[in-house]
Amino acid sequence: MSPARYDAIGRGYSGTRREDPALRAQLHAALGDARTVVNVGAGAGAYEPRDRHVVAIEPSDVMAAQRPRELAPAIRATADALPLRDASVDAGLSVLSLHHWDAGQERGVHELRRVARGPVVLLTFDRDVSGAMWLVADYVPEIAALDRRIFPPMDVLARWLGGDVRVEVVPISRDTPDWTLGAFWAHPERVLDPVARANTSGFARMPTPIVERAVAALERDLADGTWDDRHGDLRELDEFDAGMRMLVAEPG
């Protein structure tokens, strides 16, 4: 996990990356009756349970500084070396963080399994599904190439987790307040918003010329109606599968 990366990406993160109530409920339900939870890559605290004891792990000072005052401070540590004893918490949680663990991904997943007595819940993206979304496929294929390197396939994650693993599709609501890159599916105008772009790791990790090219192309296609001719039916949907997946692993 790279604290320097999120020190850059995370400025103003909480402005456009707010909790989606439906997603929060789904994540908390997956934690079952766990009373103690380690949240790895805890960031600004989105989706962190307020009614359980949470050990927040976050290496970035910028992200941790955006945590609400009612949440416990985050411990500065990385996923691949959790400062916890074996089976010391009831459950493990990681929300859209694993793709930033770099070379520590497999070790980080094993660490979550090591410290959690019960379920480990991972929210991530299926890179094959997300790569087919219009934004990535038509305008920024470089993000798909990056995602193929940084998002482990579902079967690999299941193998790392071990035990009984289920994978749940998590459709993204049109009105979600959590503006992940996938949440742009029905809102192409958001791509033109530099703040919205900067708060997605996909755009934030792209070189400036690539971002400028994509923005210019989409701005043109919105102005002349090309985007709506190709994808306007998306504006009629309430939700869309942009590749978000929740893995829930019970110990074997």
Rank of each mutant, 00 (worst) to 15 (best):
M1R: 11
A4V: 13
A4M: 10
Y6I: 10
A8H: 14
A8S: 15
G12A: 09
G12H: 04
R35V: 08
T36Q: 04
T36Y: 04
N39K: 08
G45L: 02
E48L: 11
E48D: 12
D51E: 09
V55F: 08
V55T: 14
V55H: 08
A56V: 00
P59M: 02
M63D: 03
Q66S: 02
R67K: 07
P73Q: 01
P73W: 01
A74L: 01
R76P: 09
A77T: 01
D80I: 02
L82Y: 00
R85N: 15
V89Q: 05
A91N: 02
G92P: 01
L93M: 00
L98W: 06
H99P: 04
A103Q: 09
G104S: 03
Q105W: 02
E111Y: 03
V115Y: 01
P119S: 07
A132D: 13
R148L: 12
R149P: 09
M154F: 10
A158K: 07
D164V: 09
R166S: 11
F184G: 11
W185C: 02
A186F: 02
P188C: 00
F203C: 08
F203Y: 14
P209C: 07
E212C: 06
A216G: 10
A217V: 09
R220H: 13
L222R: 02
A223L: 06
A223W: 03
D224C: 03
F240I: 09
A242L: 01
A249R: 09
P251R: 12
